[in-house]
């Protein structure tokens, strides 16, 4: 069942026990997500985990087969799809003009908004350049500007920084934080766990199911078992390499005084192993 309340229900926008199937294949199974105004909610997971499906479901691009979607009307949603979502044969200015027309923004309001966004995106010098002539990072920043043009209440970003150089990633993060600070509820899929650590909440998906959810600190605490740093792993199947050392996951509770896992990357790997071990 879908829902469109038009106003934040309770603590924001989101999915409640949402499932999506493509034919016989379940792409999303009973996922719950709440995006709160002023906060960034990161959706992480490996390839095929269901991140894009969850975001498309929230944006209304795909209907859930089960569960509930709480989202504002399209006028109040900003969406940046995986493939950037800019019109390659239009210039930067023409892209903005088109999206502004769809949102019925014109005149001084448009002028001010365009100036602010292009300046933030570092695109003021490239307004006449075709989108296809922009670098990957510039294109992503233009796509972000288009999604933000109408000051959406819910901003949905599908891997905005994938394939973007480190400097542009910093620019994008600045823009995303700015959008949240302006009051938007931001839901962002990412494969970069260092980015997810900066989010207010993290939803980790695996094979369409929720693996773990919470604030970054809660996610670290909720990882079943414990992770230790070792020079030589005792059980290779439950170990992975980080730099020059190894991490070893054990399903047993950590011994007293042992520090919890260090970061989200370890947490995600450990949670995945815990799920696999439980299924065996």
């Amino acid at each position: 069942m879908t829902s469109a309340t038009g106003a934040p229900s309770g603590s924001g926008w989101g999915l409640a026990d949402a499932s999506v199937s493509y034919g016989d294949r379940a792409a999303l199974s009973g996922v719950t997500l709440r995006a709160v105004p002023g906060e960034v909610h990161a959706v992480v997971g490996g390839d095929g985990a269901g991140k894009t499906t969850a975001l498309r479901c929230l944006a209304g691009a795909v209907a859930p087969t089960k569960g509930r979607v709480d989202a504002p009307s399209l006028e109040r949603i900003g969406f940046m799809p995986t493939a950037a979502g800019v019109w390659a044969d239009l210039s930067v200015d023409q892209n903005i003009e088109f999206v502004a027309a769809a949102h019925k923004i014109s005149g001084t309001v448009l002028g001010q908004r365009r100036e602010a966004l292009l300046e933030g995106a570092g695109l003021t010098h490239a307004t006449t350049r075709l989108a296809k002539q922009l670098s990957g990072g510039m294109r992503q920043k233009l796509a972000f500007s288009l999604a933000m043009l109408h000051r959406p209440e819910l901003l949905i970003l599908d891997e905005p920084s994938t394939g973007v150089d480190p400097v542009s990633r910093i620019d994008l993060w600045r823009m995303i934080s700015g959008a949240a600070a302006d009051g938007a509820a931001v839901v962002m899929a990412t494969t970069y766990l260092d980015e997810a650590e900066r989010a207010s909440r993290v939803l980790a998906l695996d094979n369409g199911e929720t693996l773990i959810e919470g604030t970054p600190a809660q996610v670290l605490e909720r990882v079943p078992g414990h992770v230790t740093v070792v020079d030589t792993p005792t059980e290779r199947a439950l170990a992975w390499r980080r730099g020059r050392s190894w991490r070893q996951w054990s399903p047993t509770p950590p011994p007293a005084g042992t520090a919890p896992v260090a970061d989200l990357e370890d947490a995600m790997v450990a949670a995945g192993m815990a799920k696999e071990t439980a299924h065996v």
Binding site: R56, A59, S73, F79, P81, A83, A84, G85, H103
Partner: peptide, 13 residues
């Protein structure tokens, strides 16, 4: 192919 049809789908058009 360029993914913009998805963008159009969630624009208020």
């Amino acid at each position: 192919q360029s993914g913009t049809i998805e963008q159009l789908a969630v624009m208020p058009l």
